[in-house]
Nucleic acid binder design. Structure first.
Length: 133
DNA sequence: AATCAAGGCCAG
DNA sequence: CTGGCCTTGATT
């Protein structure tokens, strides 16, 4: 899908701790008003606030799916697998930990602002997808 | 009304 | 199973 063949141009930041992702504050007071943030988990370019942390759609769906499905991932190693934008899909267990480590709250899955029992979402989805079948 | 945030479904 | 977008609802 989006498997962009991203290529690190040599860069290889000398002392580049892969575990250090600089999350820019969105306190745009006349500066970068762009919504291009980086995922705190995989480091994707397109990420937005989700579950309390900057996460991309992939991590969002994965996180939700993991919590709701309560999947049982197991890393054959310890848990120090390199989780980058390239290896994120390799180890689900490590990726999940990455989400938690990023600061994603499992409790934010449902009660976003108020638990008045809202969002029933009938989901009509009349004509949008399924063009001419 | 506009924006943000989460849920869910679909396409590959 | 992964990833993107739409839908929904509340909040500002």
């Amino acid at each position: 899908m989006m498997r962009g063949e991203l290529k690190i141009s040599g860069a290889t930041s000398s002392s580049g701790p892969a575990t250090s992702y600089v999350i820019r504050e969105k306190s745009n007071s006349g500066g970068s008003q762009n919504g291009d943030s980086v995922c705190a988990v995989c480091g994707d370019g397109i990420a937005k606030l989700h579950y309390g942390v900057l996460a991309c759609y992939g991590c969002k769906g994965f996180f939700r799916r993991t919590l709701t499905g309560k999947y049982r991932y197991a890393c054959r190693f310890g848990n120090n697998c390199i989780v980058d934008k390239f290896h994120r899909n390799s180890c689900r267990y490590c990726r999940f930990q990455r989400c938690i480590q990023a600061g994603m709250d499992p409790k934010a899955v449902r009660p976003d602002r108020d638990q008045t029992g809202k969002q029933k979402v009938p989901r009509i989805k009349k004509s949008k997808l399924m063009r001419n079948y």
